[in-house]
Write a protein that binds this DNA or RNA. Sequence first.
DNA 1: TATGAATGAGCGTTCATTCAT
DNA 2: AATGAATGAACGCTCATTCAT
Lengths: 196, 196, 196, 196
Amino acid sequence: MPKIVDHDLQREAFAKAAMRLIGRAGLEGVTMRAVAAEAGLSYGSLFHYFGSKDELLLSTVRYALGKQSDRLNDLSQRFSGLDALEKMLCDDALTSESSHDVWMVWMTFQYQAALRDSFAEVNAELVDGWHDRIRLALIDAQEAREVRADLDVDLEASALWAYSTGIGQLGVLHPDAFPVDRQEALVRACINKLRT
Amino acid sequence: MPKIVDHDLQREAFAKAAMRLIGRAGLEGVTMRAVAAEAGLSYGSLFHYFGSKDELLLSTVRYALGKQSDRLNDLSQRFSGLDALEKMLCDDALTSESSHDVWMVWMTFQYQAALRDSFAEVNAELVDGWHDRIRLALIDAQEAREVRADLDVDLEASALWAYSTGIGQLGVLHPDAFPVDRQEALVRACINKLRT
Amino acid sequence: MPKIVDHDLQREAFAKAAMRLIGRAGLEGVTMRAVAAEAGLSYGSLFHYFGSKDELLLSTVRYALGKQSDRLNDLSQRFSGLDALEKMLCDDALTSESSHDVWMVWMTFQYQAALRDSFAEVNAELVDGWHDRIRLALIDAQEAREVRADLDVDLEASALWAYSTGIGQLGVLHPDAFPVDRQEALVRACINKLRT
Amino acid sequence: MPKIVDHDLQREAFAKAAMRLIGRAGLEGVTMRAVAAEAGLSYGSLFHYFGSKDELLLSTVRYALGKQSDRLNDLSQRFSGLDALEKMLCDDALTSESSHDVWMVWMTFQYQAALRDSFAEVNAELVDGWHDRIRLALIDAQEAREVRADLDVDLEASALWAYSTGIGQLGVLHPDAFPVDRQEALVRACINKLRT
DNA sequence: TATGAATGAGCGTTCATTCAT
DNA sequence: AATGAATGAACGCTCATTCAT
């Protein structure tokens, strides 16, 4: 019998380490050696679990966003309409200490996806999912008469997407100017403008 | 003093080349060799004009944003209030073909500034300038009674900043989902919501 | 003593796998992982049966040449003189599909033996055996008056050795220019020149 | 002005270094670091002159065989028929100390060409050249009535090719059993058999 | 001043080997 | 005995930077 380890757990450990490094120093800080060291394992080990750096990176983004996705799923089941939207955007946009790393991963990944085909595909699927969620919540809100019947749902969905993207980015890059409570206030203000 | 003019022209030529490369392939595409080749100048001379890669990068961002800043200055002299705001945001946010490279430089730089102290300083000054412009235009609008008197100017300035940041980023990264006319529509819709 | 049989069988399975890999992609294609995979056995077990890669390689060459040696022994018992020589050289030199892997192993091994002492020793013994066989067959032929009495047996043995070496190498490396029937024709032509 | 160096001369220096290493330790001994060290230059320099290891290797084989080719051209101008053939084969086959490295390069290259497409192309051209030379010399000899009129020139050319290949290989791999004078004797014996 | 050659640290990746179960 | 995880040295290659002319 081989040394018993949970393969997926190890992969996750490396993904976590990579996420921490991205959070701390961006993609440039993610060298395979640094990831191994951060995970407390040997360099060679890393390649036992990931065939290449790209594979690790893709796993990292899936891990980082997977957790968030789970939370969003939970929220969209427990709430609906503008309520759900507010909760989702707050959860997503808010760059508190705990989600800082996730946002850095997300930004990094978006950037990479614009430059490299291998990332673009995965990105498209993640991005579309996010956009859809916003649209559906808006449609819900419209049906519940929380927002005007003639609201341009598509446009507003895009607006909210852009808005949350911007808040997230600024929250990460300028935490002093965009502390969490300000981010929350911005999200609320924006959603309230949609209310009938 | 013709030499000095030459000197600045060379620096600008390199900065332009670096900007094009960033627009095409991100920071990763910017090697000193590639910059020299793109500028059609010799490799060694690059180090005569810039002591290091960082210095070149800083010059590049100053060059890229300087042009935009000039345009904004012009706009803020010719217009005021919400009008100026709309023009400024459209000019800034719109990722048409012509400003794609500038946006890429900007995004790249923001990202670097979050990670490296040497960039953060320069970034702060650029960012503050932008935020101030928005605030001032909003105050103008308030004085001209274009917007409600009790509008939280600070908050809305932040919101517009975040909004334009998000539109710009999405415009660069997802040009298909955010073509220029959509970006414009989003900016207008946002500003119109502020109108009394 | 079934264990011992198992042990040898496993070793042979690995040696076969290594031989196939050498035939397919040369020594560079032989990684310990690839050998285990090709043999359909576990990676770790490979090191139970062979203390090192070198040991595996040595076993591989012994396995590959052992089979051929058996055939040659058989031939030299059933035939003698030039007849035996022709049969032996045809068997040995001919790089048909079935013996391609064996030839690749042989070539690879010769090459290694020239570079590494640990292989040279084993090689010397194999090579000497082959040279002796040719000499003995020539002496037989001489005694049977198939060849001239004043033939320089040593020289001709060397010549035949070189000749078969060359044919084998070219057969492996340039199969289009040296198909089996051409190889056979070359061997026959050479031997016929020795006939009185 | 840059440091003045002869680009081609540096490339040759590296090629020579690579050839020496191949002669000493085979392809496995040719690491880019070892080549740089052997050439007495820095590691990074090497990549200034060769874009990749393959490029270096191809240059090495061209360099190694180019010298030989020059000698052969010279011989085939000064001699003709069997005389030329003998001189050519002696020059080519003889693995004296001075040509040991060349032969190792040649063997190594043949082997690689069988395994890698990128080498096969260059190899084909070199190999064909060699085969043609032998054929043409034989035809010359036939016209000069040095050999029988009904000689199968194609077959004999292949035979000589195989023969010289074998002698060369054995000369390199078993220098004790195949010293230079023996190689020469073998070549002469073989050619004399062709004489009318 | 202008050029490009020279340098070496650092990268992602491979791999034989050792270790723990 | 059998398995596969763990390890780290070495490889080819890139690149900002320095140097020599």
